[in-house]
Amino acid sequence: MASVVFGRFSPYNTFVHRLDPRNKIFMVILLMVMIFLRIGNWSTTYILCGVYLLFLIIIMLIAKISFLELFKSLKSMWFLVLFIFAIYVFLPATVEIKETGHVAFYINTYPIYWESFLQSGYIIFRLIMMIALMMLLTSTTTPMNLTYAFEWYMSPLKVIKFPTHEIAMTLSIALRFIPTLLDETERIQKAQASRGVDFNKGGLFKRFKAIVSLIIPLFISAIDRSEQLADAMEARGFDPKMKRTRYRILKFHLRDLISLLFVLILFAGVLTLFIFDKNGYPIDILNFFFNIKTKF
């Protein structure tokens, strides 16, 4: 089965699963922004990263998301991680690092800075956090609820006659068919394997042919399916221009308010620190709390 980067919905009923999807999207965006605010010197940045990571782990435990699943989706990223690392460490450092940085070692006479390592580590950390947050969102919210939430966010655009409902409908149909198409792919793959196709071996031409034998039937069945679906919708009186009522209505509960307040307070705190830091009051947690002076 093809590995999907952002996890499939995991059918539990935890606190995180029950949250309003609109609220969840908003909170995820806030947390993402928060992660991108770099505060203070390197030691402070890394301590805050540790705090974010702890926070994320706690939420993941509450939402019953398996860490194995996260690692699986990260596994496909290892090349990107290596690439980022190489670029940051071996390419000439920025002016800022050159002026204030500390040299770790020299390759011949080419200096490699400690700061480059720290920088690449920070970027990789942010990447992982982004993926983990996206996974948190997609594996605790059904695709249907996600599209409802998107539609709600787009609703102001209705004023300028933007077809929000049609777009949401298209999106939800597309999402609905992802698992179906995956199953279909698997089925056709097996059928072709019975005809002697080897999807993992052979030269370029053979592999190309193998892929063609998979893609064409897949397209045909997808087109067939969409025709059938359109007919079925029409038979039930679907009209894209009509105003519709809804079976599931999104509600903002007390738990949404509590979690939103919590995230907002966290965000506000981090934002305050950030503003202080950028306006001449450098934040140094190690120095402030423990009186330890570091060079990073």
Partner: peptide
């Protein structure tokens, strides 16, 4: 496995979907 598949073939349900 490939040799086995030459001797034992499987026709799936609705095999017309494998034509390309």
């Amino acid at each position: 496995i490939k040799e086995l598949r030459k001797h034992l073939s499987l026709v799936f349900q609705f095999p017309e979907y494998q034509l390309f």
